Amino acid sequence: MTEYKLVVVGAGGVGKSALTIQLIQNHFVDEYDPTIEDSYRKQVVIDGETCLLDILDTAGQEEYSAMRDQYMRTGEGFLCVFAINNTKSFEDIHHYREQIKRVKDSEDVPMVLVGNKCDLPSRTVDTKQAQDLARSYGIPFIETSAKTRQGVDDAFYTLVREIRKHKEKMSKDGKKKKKKSKTKCVIM
């Protein structure tokens, strides 16, 4: 069974824990209790493949930012979460993405942009803004509501699919490099 290491990042209060708990335990946590770091595991079937999701729910508070490099190193894919009623959390996505790329030393890291709290009427981040940002990053965008469960499975499952595509691409690139290195030079 394939294991996928997913990391949920975003500013404090955007609903990272609520999304994760909704996926794992099928219930909505409405009281806000700032996370330092929590880890969850769940076995699911995605596109006919049974897999184990190892999900790291991270601290959004700035005082825990020193811990970010460590979990970013171990993560295979990242859910970059903002709240649709919090423009600052949307603007912060850029910083999370840049930090992930720096730590992973790669421009090509599996990510999904997630606009959470889409059940709320007080939207300050337009869907088109988020779609445009995701398009500019070359990553999928999904709106979710941890409260109603809308888009929750889709967000995590899409990230797994992005990781699969990335692994497939990397193995193809690896095979191309191996083929090239088999060419021999004969000096007579």
Rank of each mutant, 00 (worst) to 15 (best):
Q129T: 08
K167T: 04
K180G: 10
K165W: 00
V125C: 06
T127I: 10
L133C: 03
I142S: 01
D153R: 11
H166M: 13
K175G: 13
Y157M: 13
S181G: 12
K167F: 03
F156L: 15
V125D: 13
T144I: 15
A130N: 04
E162R: 01
S136P: 04
Q129Y: 07
D126R: 01
K165R: 04
A130G: 05
L159K: 00
K178I: 09
R164P: 03
M170C: 09
V125K: 14
E143G: 05
V125L: 06
A134R: 02
K182G: 13
S145F: 04
Y157T: 14
R161Q: 14
G138D: 14
R164M: 13
I139R: 01
L159N: 00
V160P: 00
D126S: 10
D132T: 04
K169D: 09
R149C: 13
G174T: 09
Q129R: 06
V152A: 08
L133R: 03
K128Q: 09
K165E: 08
K128Y: 05
M188V: 11
Y157K: 15
K169Y: 10
L133E: 04
K128C: 09
A130E: 05
K175F: 05
R164V: 14
S136M: 13
A130M: 11
M188N: 14
Y157C: 14
S136D: 14
A146G: 15
D153N: 11
D153P: 08
K169T: 11
K176F: 06
L159I: 12
D126W: 02
D132E: 12
T127G: 08
S145V: 12
R164K: 15
Q129F: 11
E168D: 08
K169L: 11
S136F: 10
V125S: 12
D154L: 10
A155W: 08
K178L: 06
Y157L: 10
K172D: 12
S145M: 04
L133N: 02
A155E: 00
L159A: 05
D153H: 13
L159G: 00
D154Q: 12
Q131F: 04
K178R: 02
T144F: 15
A134D: 01
D132V: 03
Q129D: 09
T158F: 06
Q131L: 08
K184V: 00
D154P: 04
H166D: 12
T127Y: 09
M188G: 13
K169V: 10
H166E: 08
K172M: 14
D153I: 13
T144Q: 15
Y157E: 15
Y137S: 04
Y137F: 12
Y157N: 12
L159E: 00
V152I: 13
E168A: 12
S136Q: 14
D132C: 04
A130R: 01
T158G: 04
H166C: 07
I163A: 06
D153K: 13
L133I: 08
K169P: 07
I163R: 00
K128P: 06
R161C: 01
D126V: 06
V152T: 05
T127V: 08
G174R: 01
I139G: 03
D126H: 04
K178G: 12
C185Q: 15
I139A: 06
F156R: 01
R161S: 11
V152M: 14
H166V: 06
K167E: 12
G174V: 09
T144S: 06
T158C: 06
V125R: 02
S145G: 15
D153V: 13
V125I: 08
I139V: 08
D132S: 05
Y157I: 13
K128H: 06
R149D: 07
D154E: 13
Q129G: 09
Q129L: 07
A155Q: 01
I187C: 15
D173T: 08
E162K: 05
E143I: 02
K169S: 11
Y137T: 06
A155N: 00
G174S: 13
Y137Q: 03
S136A: 13
K167V: 03
K178M: 09
A155L: 15
K167D: 12
S145P: 00
C185A: 15
V152N: 07
T158Y: 08
T158V: 04
D173C: 04
E168F: 06
K165A: 12
Y137E: 05
Q131Y: 10
F156A: 11
Q129C: 07
V125Q: 05
E168W: 02
A155P: 09
S136R: 02
E162N: 04
E162F: 02
S136L: 09
A146L: 14
R135H: 10
R135V: 03
K180A: 13
V160C: 03
T183H: 00
G138H: 01
Q131S: 11
I142C: 06
I139Y: 04
I139K: 03
D153C: 12
I139D: 01
K176Y: 12
A146I: 03
M188W: 12
K165C: 02
F156D: 00
E162T: 05
D154I: 05
Q131G: 08
M170E: 14
Y157W: 10
L159V: 07
K177S: 10
K182V: 02
K178N: 11
I139S: 03
D154N: 09
E162Y: 01
H166Y: 13
Y157D: 12
T144V: 15
R135M: 10
L133D: 02
V160Q: 02
K128N: 09
H166A: 06
A134P: 00
K180W: 09
S145T: 11
R135T: 11
M188H: 14
V160T: 02
L159S: 00
R161M: 01
D173P: 13
E168I: 08
V152D: 04
V160S: 01
L159R: 00
I139W: 00
T158A: 06
L133F: 10
T127N: 12
A130S: 05
D126G: 07
V186A: 14
M188C: 06
R149L: 05
F156N: 00
F156P: 00
M170R: 07
K172N: 15
M188Y: 11
T127H: 07
K165T: 06
K176A: 11
D154H: 09
D126K: 07
F141A: 02
Q131A: 11
K177W: 02
T127K: 08
V186L: 07
L159C: 04
Y157F: 12
M188A: 14
V160A: 02
T127C: 13
D173L: 05
T183A: 06
D153A: 14
Q131K: 08
A134I: 01
Q129N: 03
V186F: 06
K167R: 07
A155K: 00
V125E: 09
E168Y: 14
K172R: 10
D126L: 05
F156T: 07
K177A: 00
R135E: 06
K178Q: 08
T183G: 11
K167P: 01
K165M: 11
K167S: 08
Q129P: 08
K165D: 15
H166Q: 10
K167Y: 10
R135I: 04
A134M: 01
D154G: 07
I187V: 11
K176V: 02
T158M: 05
A130Y: 14
K128W: 05
Q131N: 11
A130T: 04
D154S: 09
K178V: 08
A155C: 09
Y157P: 06
F156C: 13
A155D: 00
R161P: 00
A155F: 05
D132M: 04
S181H: 03
G151Y: 02
L133Y: 06
E162A: 05
K182L: 03
Y137C: 11
E162M: 04
K167W: 01
K177Y: 11
D126C: 10
V160W: 02
V152W: 15
I187A: 15
L159W: 00
Y137A: 07
E162G: 04
R135S: 09
E162S: 03
K128M: 08
G138S: 01
Q131V: 07
K165H: 03
C185D: 15
D153Y: 12
K176G: 10
V186T: 15
R161G: 08
G151L: 11
R164S: 07
A146F: 05
C185G: 10
K128G: 08
R164A: 05
D154F: 05
F156H: 01
V160I: 14
V152R: 07
K128A: 09
E143D: 12
Q131E: 13
D154A: 10
K176D: 10
D126M: 06
Q129E: 14
K172Y: 13
E168G: 08
E162L: 04
K128T: 11
R161A: 07
K175E: 15
S145A: 07
V160N: 01
F156K: 01
V152F: 13
A155R: 00
M188S: 14
K167G: 07
T127Q: 06
H166N: 13
D132I: 04
Y157Q: 14
F156E: 00
A134G: 02
L133S: 03
K165L: 06
